[in-house]
Amino acid sequence: MFKVFLKSAACAVVLVGAVAAAPAPAVSVASSANLVAGQSRDGYDRHVMIKNRTGWTMLRFYASDSRTDDWEEDILGDRVLENGRDLRINIDDGSGACLYDFKAQFTNGQELTRFRINVCEVSEYTYTR
Rank of each mutant, 00 (worst) to 15 (best):
C98S: 14
A9S: 11
V4W: 12
D65T: 02
T68I: 11
D69K: 10
C98L: 07
A63L: 15
R79D: 11
D74C: 09
Q39E: 10
A33E: 15
A24N: 12
R116S: 14
V119S: 07
H47W: 00
A22M: 10
P23R: 01
I91E: 00
D69T: 07
D70W: 14
A21S: 12
A12T: 12
F115N: 00
R46Q: 11
Y44R: 04
I91V: 15
V14N: 07
Q110W: 04
R60M: 13
T54M: 09
F61R: 04
I91H: 05
I75K: 13
A21P: 05
F61A: 08
L76G: 03
Y62K: 10
D65I: 01
A26T: 13
G17W: 04
I89D: 04
A21I: 09
D65Y: 10
R67Q: 10
S40R: 01
R53Q: 14
V16P: 04
E121V: 02
A22G: 11
P25V: 00
A30E: 11
R114V: 13
N90C: 07
L59N: 14
Y62I: 08
V13S: 08
F5Y: 11
A12M: 13
L112V: 15
K7Q: 15
S66E: 07
R79T: 10
A33I: 02
D74G: 06
R88I: 03
Y100T: 00
A22N: 13
Y100N: 01
S64P: 05
A18D: 11
N90W: 03
A33C: 03
T126N: 03
A33T: 07
F106M: 08
